[in-house]
């Protein structure tokens, strides 16, 4: 069966239209920038450290601009070359400060435990003032280890994702 060119063209246009959001990913009105203020390095020298929190204060600053859309910000933990399951309930982000008064972040100083699936950090409604961006400052907390975490060197990454709800 031979489709008329007009139909094919319409399909193309419709698909492109629905995909315009892809172009919006680069929209300067909605973006996220991460600044690592303190290196995320956790070193252990004494056994006693294994059973106490280790905190890197003010480690991360997330700059969020949401001038066009409401946004959700998620974080996902991944372990590079290791079994992520042994780090369940191990690493959390603790909101230390923020410049947004409209973000739904939950209580300050509450730990948000990271996992290998996206965890919602906060909801930021569309900005209504002329602020260029809102800043969110996070401590990174390493919680007491379990015996299941074997001695070694582990590399991890925290992926921050901004999406439209």
């Amino acid at each position: 069966m031979k489709l008329p060119f007009s139909i094919l063209f319409s399909i193309c246009v419709l698909t492109l239209y629905s995909g315009t959001s892809y172009a919006q990913a680069a929209n300067p009105d909605n973006n996220i920038t991460l600044t690592v203020n303190q290196p995320l390095v956790f070193s252990y020298n004494f056994a006693d450290e294994l059973v106490h929190d280790k905190i890197i204060n003010n480690a991360l600053e997330l700059k969020v601009r949401s001038a066009q859309y409401n946004t959700n910000i998620y974080a996902t933990l991944s372990l590079i070359g290791g079994d992520i399951s042994q780090f369940a309930q191990q690493i959390s982000l603790r909101l230390r400060n923020k410049t947004s008064i409209s973000a739904a972040t939950g209580s300050a100083n509450t730990d948000i435990y990271l996992a290998n699936t996206p965890v919602l950090l906060f909801y930021q409604p569309r900005m209504i003032d002329n602020t260029p961006y809102y800043s969110f400052y996070y401590d990174v907390v390493m919680h007491p280890f379990t015996y299941q975490v074997r001695p070694g060197t582990y590399n991890f990454s925290i992926l921050f994702t901004m999406t439209q709800p």
Partner: peptide, 8 residues
């Protein structure tokens, strides 16, 4: 949109 922090 994504941003990543790495640690050890």
């Amino acid at each position: 949109l994504n941003q990543t922090a790495n640690g050890t």
